[in-house]
């Protein structure tokens, strides 16, 4: 059961609950096929660095989950099928990435210290 992290960018045209419904659909795809969702992060509407499909803002959502390998292909086919999803990115998390995400979830404050330390460094 590899750990994955997927970020999806939804088109800003749809209303808030429509966006929630799209995300619920993908969450359903995950949980139905035996994935275990660890963490979800909703960044909401954010300004894009360059226009995607003629739109300058996107509705970001991040899902971190544990899943068997072959589920990823199914998930990505679902993404491609749904035209409300403008962009998606799914990556496998190696051990450093997993440690980073745990630390970020649990110790948000030392993340700040690590940030300032990075700035200083």
């Amino acid at each position: 059961m590899q750990q994955y992290e997927t970020v999806i960018v939804l088109t800003p045209l749809l209303s808030d609950e429509a966006a929630k419904e799209v995300i619920a659909k993908f969450r359903g795809v995950l949980t139905d096929n035996g994935a275990e969702i660890i963490h979800e992060d909703n960044w909401g509407l954010k300004k894009l660095a360059y226009p995607i499909q003629k739109k300058t803002t996107g509705y970001y959502h991040l899902i971190e989950f544990k899943a068997p390998g072959e589920l990823i292909n199914k998930l990505e086919v679902e993404y491609k099928r749904d035209e409300r999803v403008m962009r998606f990115l799914t990556i496998a998390l190696d051990k450093h990435a997993r440690a980073y995400s745990e630390k970020k979830r649990s110790g948000a404050f030392n993340q700040k210290k690590q940030q300032t330390e990075e700035v200083a460094g």
């Binding site: 660095a49 996107g58 990115l89």
Partner: peptide, 13 residues
């Protein structure tokens, strides 16, 4: 490159 793909960083500006 990943940040550019999901629209956080620009490709060229």
């Amino acid at each position: 490159k990943r940040a550019r793909h999901i629209g956080i960083l620009p490709y060229v500006t």
